[in-house]
Amino acid sequence: MNEVKLARTNSDECRVQEVKTQKDTLLDLCNQILRLLNTRLSDKSILVLQEELRFMQRCSYYLEIQREDLLPTVDQNQQTLHLSDSMVWSLIDQQKLQRTMTQANTQVRLLLALLGMLYEEIIRGCQELEAFIVEYYQGLVDSDMAASMQQKLQKTHQYMSDFQNRLTRNLGPLDLQNRLIPNTCNFPLPHLSASLTIKMPVIFDRFKSCVSSNTAYLFWDVVDEQSKEPTQQFEIHGRSLHPTIPEHGQLTVTTSQSYNIQVNNLTPDMHYQFSVKRVDAVNLVYGLWIDTIILKTLDISK
């Protein structure tokens, strides 16, 4: 009889210990989730992720060709062959170059699609983790739900790491399956490699840009640019907009090497739409973003 009572007591103690262990494990899981929600998945952090994704989608991507047979120099540009150079252009096989440009465009589109998918998975994970915490406080969580949420927590951490690892300003080398310069000469040809580089979006400065009755003063910047590049060229489009019907005035196109421009001879009390982007280069493989601003000239009759 005493043995039966002792066995029952031991069994009860095991169940109590098991329940305590489950509660401790569940509490630890909830604390891990709360730390993540309050740090890397806070509202501010999510906005940062959203902005990083938007900037990557708005960047311009370029193909750069480098000579591998030259020793490294202080100025890395000395090793870069610019496709706009007439000599380089004459040596490169145009069909192979076009295939390389297509390959680079595909790589950029895949990167942006992957970043978009990772961002959506992060947001979905954040929502599910938040819902789990609510159910935990309501006492609706069981061991199966906890195990599932532990996996969700690990996957969300992995998605965030993958997202950050993909945010790079240099997309690395491309695999050149064929030589861009055909070996039809009797002298040694340069060994070339190709890579993708990124330029950040061009965006109007909406605090500085303004109008008078017949003049628009437009200012723009490049996101995260530490110093203005003197060699950059920008293309500015402008057209008048009818205030009540969808009529557009004649399109004007202007180029500028500075980061501002003055547009004269505008009509008072009229809406104008302006857009700005970099002048397209021959090595541009992807760049859809064009910033647009609408301004209304002052009414001089008032």
Rank of each mutant, 00 (worst) to 15 (best):
E51K: 11
N165G: 10
I203N: 02
C126L: 05
E51I: 09
E3Y: 13
P72Q: 00
E229P: 05
Q17E: 11
T25Q: 10
Y61M: 02
S212F: 02
Q127Y: 04
Q22R: 09
R124E: 10
V223F: 12
R35V: 12
G125P: 04
R124V: 05
P243I: 01
I236L: 07
V48A: 09
S240Q: 05
C185H: 14
S275P: 00
D299R: 06
T21L: 15
E3W: 13
E128N: 13
Q226L: 14
M200Q: 13
D43Y: 07
P230F: 07
Q150K: 15
H248A: 10
E229T: 13
T197Y: 02
Q250Y: 14
M270P: 05
A194N: 06
G287E: 01
C30K: 00
A194E: 06
H248Y: 14
E229W: 00
S45E: 15
Q66S: 08
S143Q: 13
D28R: 14
L114V: 10
N183I: 08
L6H: 10
Q138P: 04
E13Q: 15
G172I: 01
D280P: 01
D85S: 07
V222M: 08
P190V: 04
I46K: 01
T254E: 09
I290N: 10
I92D: 05
E235S: 12
L70H: 01
M160S: 13
R54C: 08
Q50Y: 03
P190R: 03
L153W: 01
T267F: 07
Q273M: 07
E135M: 12
L37F: 02
Q17L: 13
Y286W: 07
S161W: 12
R206H: 00
E3T: 14
I133H: 03
L29C: 00
L97G: 05
T255C: 12
L6N: 08
L115Y: 01
L167G: 01
I236A: 04
D162V: 05
S209T: 03
K199T: 09
V211Y: 03
P182A: 03
C126A: 13
